[in-house]
């Protein structure tokens, strides 16, 4: 009788344990899904914040560029035009008095050339004429050749097929051009490089611009930290531009050559 009571107790305990186990699994699933929802919400908030930050960086970069143009026009073009206006009225008065000075007139004509050149330089800064005329690849190659000097030796390796057709519009090409220039500028400023190679290549779905350089390399993690902590706009606007193009920047720190790879999806 005692044994039977004991057995009944075992069975009851067994059933209870199994029931509890099933309940524990159900509670686990519910808790997990709730925590996952919280995590997803957090990620969404962070992404929103990041997008806002990128947007802010883009707007700030644009404002800074406008400011630069305004300063350029105000400090160089405006004084020259004011001086020209003054000189023109002087020439008119001299002409009326039959005291016209042709040398002074020629000097002013030269000043007009300077004004034109200054405006051209501002326009070039906005959209490089070379890029409009010859496209991204040749512009990049031209830029790399231009920066080559005694301290820095540069090289371009173009592995793109002859029939390669970059499916980016002018605005997107300008973005890529600016990204590459910013990257090269950053390398010159911070890495202490003496050798720079630009590799252009493609596969079935991506177009790559890869910069190989000696000097101090930087990794993905380091650049991520730097972007978060940096007060400057450079790295953030770089990230924003890459994001707009739906591309990816990969930083690899290696010896003897480190690299930065810009990957862009090809529109089919």
């Amino acid at each position: 009788m005692q044994n039977q009571t004991q057995l009944a107790l075992f069975i009851a305990v067994g059933c209870l344990v199994m029931f509890l186990l099933v309940m524990v699994i159900i509670v686990f699933v519910v808790t997990y899904q709730r925590k996952m929802l919280e995590k997803e919400n957090k990620i969404a908030i962070i992404q929103q914040e990041q997008q806002l930050l990128f947007f802010k960086a883009t707007v700030e970069a644009e404002e800074k560029q406008k400011e630069r143009i305004a300063n350029n026009l105000h400090d160089s073009v405006n004084p020259m035009l004011t001086l020209l206006k003054l000189n023109l009225s002087k020439h008119r008065m001299a002409f009326e008095k039959n005291k016209f000075n042709s040398d002074a007139y020629k000097g002013d004509a030269k000043m007009i050339d300077q004004v034109i050149e200054s405006i051209r330089a501002t326009c070039r800064e906005l959209i490089p004429s070379f890029l409009l005329e010859f496209g991204l690849i040749l512009s990049l190659e031209d830029h790399i050749k231009k920066i080559s000097g005694e301290v820095l030796s540069t090289e371009v390796k173009n592995e793109l097929p002859p029939e390669f057709n970059l499916t980016l519009d002018k605005q997107e090409q300008l973005l890529v051009y600016r990204i590459c220039l910013e990257l090269i500028n950053n390398l010159i400023k911070h890495s202490g490089l003496t050798k720079l190679t630009m590799l252009l290549k493609q596969d079935t779905s991506f177009f790559y611009v890869q910069l190989f350089y000696d000097g101090n390399g930087i990794s993905n993690e380091e650049i991520e930290k730097l972007t978060e902590t940096s007060k400057g706009l450079g790295l953030r606007s770089l990230k924003a531009r890459v994001l707009i193009l739906q591309g990816q920047l990969t930083y690899e720190k290696n010896k003897p050559l480190s690299s930065i790879k810009l990957t862009l999806p090809l529109k089919l």
Binding site: F28, V29, T31, Y32, Q33, K35, M36, K39, E40
Partner: peptide, 10 residues
């Protein structure tokens, strides 16, 4: 699974 939180729908 609970620590990693990598499975969207368990």
């Amino acid at each position: 699974v609970f620590v990693d939180m990598t499975i969207p729908k368990l």
